[in-house]
Amino acid sequence: MSRRPRLLTHLALILWTLIALFPVWLVIINSMKSRRAIFAEPLALPGPKSFDLVGYQTVLKQGDFLLYVQNSLIVTVVSLALVLLFGAMAAFALAEYRFRGNRLMGLYLALGIMIPIRLGTVAILQGMVATGLVNTRIALILVYTAQGIPLCVFILSEFMRGLSDDLKNAARIDGLSEYAIFFRIILPLVRPAMATVAVFTMIPIWNDLWFPLILAPAEAVKTITLGTQVFLGQFVTNWNAVLAALTLAIGPVLVLYLIFSRQLIRGITAGAVK
């Protein structure tokens, strides 16, 4: 009886993956076609007559594309590491210790999920100007870390409340400090949940255009999403270059996704079958 639910779960994951990858596949095949072929046959594979790499040539010649990818990688990876570290520590404190204001603190963090951080754009920009962090990657890292922590705490705290108290008490009896318990016992047990948080946090960071445009528009700190906008004009858009840039931008984030995918699938299917 247990094989059928497991099979249905895997089939659903495969179907979800195919649906999610179809737009990616569409972007990739059209990035290698001529402009006329993109609009004439968008679903067709590149052929001898339609194959054209002019988009990639334009991307590599115009602008510093590799620098944009490097900036996006640094901002995404550092922000993700800080979100997982501080979010997990805050979640452990809320789930493990009982203190005055515990529920109020949890509610405050939950409000960070419901209220978009973009509503505070003006205040954030004023703060970055006052501290001299405009046109730096640090500004983006700070904003994305603040943006991702509420969701991280909300998810991980629920997982940590379900961990065995006997395991933690046994570690305390053996003389482990709270930091040792957190890093050596708690974190390995919540890795599937952390991978889930990582995937749902890194995609909005990598694809964000709002804060890079406002806080870091300088050429030296442009992200890949902002750098791609150079090919989008008010009257004319270079679709070959746009699709080529998007195809090249898919690679790094796809690698990050594959790193977390195994733990992500474990986190999604945890408790689904017995």
Rank of each mutant, 00 (worst) to 15 (best):
R4C: 05
R6A: 03
L7H: 02
L7W: 03
L11V: 15
L11R: 13
L13K: 12
I14Y: 05
I14P: 10
I14G: 10
I14M: 10
V24T: 05
W25R: 01
I28R: 00
I28H: 02
F39W: 06
A40M: 06
A40V: 06
P42S: 04
K49N: 09
S50I: 04
G55R: 03
Q57V: 11
T58D: 03
T58F: 00
L60I: 00
K61F: 05
Q62Y: 04
L66N: 04
V69L: 11
S72H: 02
L73I: 14
V77W: 15
S79D: 12
L84W: 13
L84R: 10
L84M: 08
G87C: 15
M89R: 08
M89L: 07
F92W: 15
A95G: 05
E96L: 14
E96D: 15
E96H: 14
Y97S: 06
M105S: 14
M105H: 06
A110S: 02
G112M: 12
R118C: 08
R118Q: 12
L119M: 06
V122D: 00
A123I: 02
A123L: 03
L142E: 09
L142F: 12
I149E: 07
C152S: 13
F154E: 00
L156S: 12
S157G: 08
S157Y: 10
F159K: 03
M160K: 11
M160P: 05
R161L: 14
L163T: 04
N169W: 14
R184C: 02
R184H: 04
I185G: 15
R191N: 12
A193T: 05
M194G: 13
M194T: 13
A195R: 02
T201S: 10
M202R: 11
P204Y: 08
L213S: 10
L213F: 05
I214W: 01
I214E: 13
I214P: 06
T225N: 05
T228N: 07
V230M: 14
F235R: 15
F235M: 14
V236D: 13
T237G: 07
T237M: 04
T237H: 01
N238H: 08
W239L: 11
W239R: 11
A241C: 07
V242P: 10
A244F: 00
L248M: 12
L254A: 00
Y257W: 00
I259T: 05
R266M: 03
G267Y: 04
I268R: 06
